[in-house]
Design a protein around this nucleic acid. Structure first.
Length: 474
RNA sequence: GCGCCUCUAGCUCAAUGGCAGAGCAACGGACUCUUAAUCCGCAGGUUCUGGGUUCGAAUCCCAGGGGGCGCACCA
């Protein structure tokens, strides 16, 4: 049997359930519909057969009496997993199950390999991620999560578009990696005989666009960082970065809390979610604005029980760090020490949502100096469910200061820090043309989706997570 | 990169040093209202790979491979 080249279903399983869900048992409607999907279950009972057809929207039962079903035996012999196209009358069985009587059917595609156990599905994570095409058919939860991702991204786009943000695409190949502190992947362009880096962040290009007159821009950017894998890290992941001229980091806080609350409402109809804590116990999370705002220094005092800041003598600061189990590096300045202390003692203890405000300039090379706190930058991170969700600043707009910050980064690089930045001369030239006061924001999209769907592994929100290739062909 | 755990039939899992098994799927049969259909029958294996210990290894040991988790790094 050669499968047809096209087929034209006029209903989905879900639309049938919606349209005919209220029928009494043993009803006939006289309505003939055409549907298509995979046969997931089958119950053949001699001269009467039932099957469960699943399409992208859901499931509906097929009802096939031998007396009226064309090629009845052939239908019963089809494998679970086969794609069928079915035309027939909408009806309900004596038990009341909504069904399509098979008045005609066609094989659309054969499943030559057996589908996994119809009840247990696939449990081996390796198989699930390698054979996502099977996992998606078999696991309702996984399908729901990945659809939710789509919903979140499109809601986010709509929300930003409604606020006059312009979506752009900037290069993935960067001659100079920049915009974040991370190890890049490298590649090579043959014709130009040029080494290129896969971007670790779109930041510096987006700010060039603000210089160029795009007052509100965003990019949903796949970025690449050459780091280890974990339940929360995939080497390629998606971030959204946005920049708003004339705004500062306070404006970004308002934007984040409103955006995230909006997305939660779009997806769940509420801003109150439950997410597993570190022990896997569901814990409530209320995303409704306003989120708490506190400075990093205040929070360290709250959680580590010591008041330290950038004026604390460096020896005392080193001692406090060591007391809290931070492995101190001699080259670190007070800013790095403070950040490490925060990460060790405080970050994981926060549940949020909370904005941790005012990070040391030393560890924030692209953020503008704080208007009133010497040594600090106007930067915040949003912590939700104990994890960093976003990172934002009042952008550093002064070319001379930016040059000095880059050069400081270069000195770190020379001291062996291969995640430190390098000088991007063209970016400095762009700043010379004038970057207006600008608020910038980056949100980890994968982690945002995890938060909103309750997923605890980043692999669950990425369709095809990075895996080592199979040793031989499956 | 380091540590711990894991890998048995297409899928989900048993067998803890003594004949490799069950359910589902597949295959053959019965069955006109089932819905994880049921019933009868039949078949299915490089126990991840390679070494070793042992009378005997899925099981213990060593090495390698895939995966998971933790640490490190980060978002």
């Amino acid at each position: 049997m050669i499968p047809p080249y096209r087929f034209e279903p006029d209903r989905s399983a879900a639309s049938l359930q919606e349209e005919f869900g209220a029928l009494d048992p043993a009803s006939e409607t006289g309505v003939v519909v055409t549907i298509a999907g995979r046969m997931m279950l089958r119950r053949v009972q001699g001269k009467l057969a039932f099957a469960t057809l699943q399409d992208g929207s859901g499931r509906v039962q097929l009802f096939a009496p031998s007396a009226t079903t064309p090629r009845f035996d052939a239908l019963c012999d089809r494998s679970l997993g086969d794609w069928l196209g079915v035309t027939g009358e909408v009806m309900t069985t004596r038990r009341g199950e909504l069904s399509v009587r098979v008045d005609d059917w066609v094989l659309l595609a054969e499943a030559r390999r057996p589908f996994p156990d119809k009840w247990h599905g696939i449990s081996d994570p390796d198989t699930r991620f390698r054979q996502r095409y099977v996992d998606l058919w078999v696991s309702d939860d996984e399908r729901a999560i990945l659809r939710a991702r789509s919903t979140v991204v499109s809601s986010m786009r709509r929300w930003l578009d409604d606020r006059a943000f312009v979506e752009v695409e900037t290069p993935v190949f960067h001659p100079i990696p920049g915009g974040a502190l991370a190890k890049p992947f490298t590649t090579h362009h043959n014709a130009l005989d040029l080494d290129l880096f896969l971007r670790i962040a779109p930041e510096l290009y987006l700010k060039r666009l603000v210089v160029g007159g795009f007052e509100r821009v965003y990019e949903i950017a796949r970025v690449f960082r050459n780091e280890g894998l974990s339940p929360r890290h995939n080497p390629e992941f998606t971030m959204i970065e946005l920049y708003q001229a004339y705004a500062d980091y306070g404006d970004m806080m308002v934007l984040v809390e409103e955006l995230v609350a909006h997305l939660a409402r779009e997806l769940h109809g509420t801003t109150v979610l439950t997410y597993p804590d570190r022990d896997g116990v569901g814990r409530e999370l209320d995303l409704s604005p306003p989120w708490r705002r506190a400075t990093l220094v205040e929070l360290v005092e709250e959680h580590a029980g010591v008041r330290v800041d950038l004026d604390t003598p460096i020896d005392a600061l080193r001692r406090v760090c060591a007391d809290h189990g931070v492995k101190v590096d001699e080259s670190w300045g007070p800013g790095k020490l403070l950040l490490e202390l925060y990460e060790k003692t405080t970050e994981h203890a926060l549940w949020g949502p909370i904005f941790v405000c005012d990070y040391p300039k030393e560890v924030s090379p692209l953020a503008r100096s704080h208007r009133s706190e010497p040594g600090m930058a106007e930067r915040f991170e949003g912590i939700v469910a104990g994890r960093e969700l976003c990172n934002a600043f009042s952008e550093l707009v002064d070319p001379d200061e930016q040059r000095a910050r880059f050069e400081e980064q270069v000195s770190h690089r020379d001291a062996g820090d291969d995640e430190a930045m390098v000088v991007d001369a063209d970016y400095l030239r762009a700043l010379d043309f004038g970057l207006p006061p600008t608020g910038g924001l980056g949100i980890g999209v994968d982690r945002l989706v995890m938060l909103l769907t309750g997923a605890t592994a980043i692999r669950d929100v990425i369709l095809f997570p990075t895996l080592r290739p199979e040793p031989n062909d499956g």
